[in-house]
Design a binder for these strands. Structure first.
Length: 501
RNA sequence: GGGCCGUUAGCUCAAUUGGUAGAGCUGCGGACUUUUAAUCCGUAGGUUCCGGGUUCGAGCCCCGGGCGGCCCA
């Protein structure tokens, strides 16, 4: 660092606490002390020392010499004896002690003058326990390993939510739970991958930059390729590419990656979110539903050691065993007290909505009306994990029509704690029907429905080579984390999109 | 897109009817060789989000804007 010029910030404008820290850095460099050394002789992690010396009585000397590092999270300086709590990456803490008798006057004075809360330090010394029994390293020598120029927020008050999200690094420093979420997420995604690999699935990465956006109904982000002089879309779903894989003979295929939807952002929607999709030849929406339940249960088991998880509010949520299932038309009929079927007229559905003071877009057709009514009257009330089966065909253009019931699609949605976690299908593989459905959607798009899909000729060509009967499903990975932890989406995503300050 | 609420010191928050902007922690100076959010003494720290208006006087009232949260679509 010392070879670089002074920081560009005008020092006069800095808050006092930052000015003081900058001046310490500058003074150290002027005195020939490197505040950002390239390497320090660390011999043990704090965790290793805690593990090795877990049961020492108070006021013990071990004779063991170690070199440790950590961020200073707590300090107590008295006249001739100083204490500091060091914390390392996984949250393990260990106390460092500096006594006049051991380090000498110069090193003790320098410690008091140079070290602030939040600094990284190296301490070499003997492993002991204090008179109060605290496992400590009694320093023979210490040095700065990284000078912090900004003061940490106070540790005893909760950080404002906005600061937590905008400055996640500060959140991670201060809040062990924030680090737990990151590790839980890693455990969950690893569990998902393990579950699929165990079942003989192949993981692929399909295009995020697409010239046509398909596979879902959502508004895309648009960007531009200079090399091709072409507007391209950030994908809204990987579905059409994963089906191309199945056509090509990759009969069990999955992808975990990001989707982008240029739509609202709230406590359960993020413009950029992690999606899991999986397709299997010779599966149906029944077998893919069983698979879905198993991978969620395996993820809970891997992350928490149990299929009964404890949520952020302290309540328990049971994901074990079989999950209940209901049909969309059946459960909606029950909620309305009147039978609705794929033949129920749009006028009648509008009347149901009006009678319940539910405002609906007058442009909505039968399928959308059914889904709106269902979501309002049934979906939002579902708490236990529940498969909702057999959707209106017209709103499921990529789904096979029910084998026995015309007008209904072999599709389910998985509801967990009142929100949609996953959706699965018996895939439509007849290229002629598929072309007809996609063309209808494209016509709607031309009519101004921005959520309708455009025609993907290459995808249809792939289907025309013959896709085996298949089941497929998609699951929001962020939402899986929400389901398992009870957190909002902005706390399951490390760095969610926020407006610039 | 609409409605409501919030925005004040490094952090978390106060501020009566419109009348000198405060506290705790943090910081700075000092005392203390066993501290765990130590204790004690002293002390500093503010463009009250931004711009305009009303007023003798605005953190507070009015108008516009920014950012955020909640609810609704």
């Amino acid at each position: 660092m010392s070879e670089f010029p002074e920081p560009p910030m005008p020092e006069d404008d800095l808050p006092e606490q930052m000015r003081v820290r900058r001046e310490k850095r500058d003074r150290l460099i002027a005195d020939g002390v490197e505040p950002y050394p390239v390497e320090v002789p660390r011999t043990h992690t704090l965790g290793e020392i805690r593990a090795t010396y877990s049961d020492l009585p108070a006021d013990t000397s071990t004779g063991a010499e170690v070199g440790v590092t950590g961020r200073v999270m707590f300090m107590r300086n008295t006249g001739k004896l100083c204490f500091a709590t060091l914390r390392e990456g996984d949250g393990t803490e260990l106390q460092a002690m500096l006594s006049l008798a051991k380090v000498g006057q110069d090193a003790l004075t320098a410690w008091k003058a140079d070290v602030d809360l939040g600094d990284h330090v190296f301490v070499r010394g003997e492993v002991i326990t204090s008179k109060r029994g605290e496992l400590s390293v009694l320093a023979d020598e210490w040095r700065l390993t990284s000078k912090a120029l900004r003061p940490l927020p106070v540790a005893h008050k909760e950080l404002a939510e906005e600061t937590r999200i905008r400055q996640r690094y500060v959140d991670l420093i201060l809040r062990p739970k924030a680090r737990d979420v990151v590790r839980t997420r890693a455990n969950v995604t690893r569990a998902l991958r393990d579950s699929f690999h165990r079942r003989g699935y192949t993981e692929v990465e399909t295009p995020m930059l697409q010239t046509l956006h398909g596979g879902a109904s959502a508004r895309p982000f648009v960007t531009h390729s200079n090399a091709f002089d072409l507007d391209v879309y950030l994908r809204i779903a990987p579905e059409l590419y994963l089906k191309r894989c199945v056509v090509g003979g990759i009969e069990k295929v999955f992808e975990i990656n990001r989707n982008f939807r240029n739509e609202g952002s709230d406590s359960s929607h993020s413009p950029e979110f992690a999606m899991l999709e999986y397709y299997q030849a010779y599966a149906t929406y029944d077998t893919i539903g069983v698979l879905t339940r198993e991978i969620v249960q395996e993820a809970a088991e891997a992350a928490f050691g149990s299929q009964v998880v404890t949520l952020a509010d302290g309540t328990e949520y049971d994901l074990s065993g079989e999950w209940s299932a209901l049909t969309m038309y059946g459960s909606l009929s029950d909620a309305l007290g009147e039978e609705v079927t794929p033949d129920t007229s749009v006028e009648k559905l509008r009347a149901f909505a009006a009678a319940r003071e539910l405002e609906v877009d007058p442009k909505l057709g039968h399928g959308k009306l059914i889904e709106e009514l269902w979501e309002h009257l049934v979906g939002s009330k579902l708490h236990a994990p529940t498969f909702v089966r057999d959707f209106p065909l017209e709103t499921s253009p990529l789904t096979r029509e029910h084998r026995d019931q015309p007008g209904i699609a072999e599709k389910w949605d998985l509801y967990v704690r009142g929100f949609e976690l996953a959706t699965g299908y018996s895939e439509l593989v007849d290229p002629v029907v598929e072309r007809r459905r996609l063309t209808e959607q494209a016509k709607l798009a031309a009519g101004g429905d921005s959520e309708a899909m455009r025609l993907d000729e290459d995808f249809l060509r792939a289907l025309e080579y013959g896709m085996p009967p298949s089941g497929g499903a998609g699951m929001g990975v962020d939402r899986l984390l929400m389901a398992l932890t009870g957190l909002g989406i902005r706390d399951t995503i490390l760095f969610p999109l926020v407006r610039p300050e």
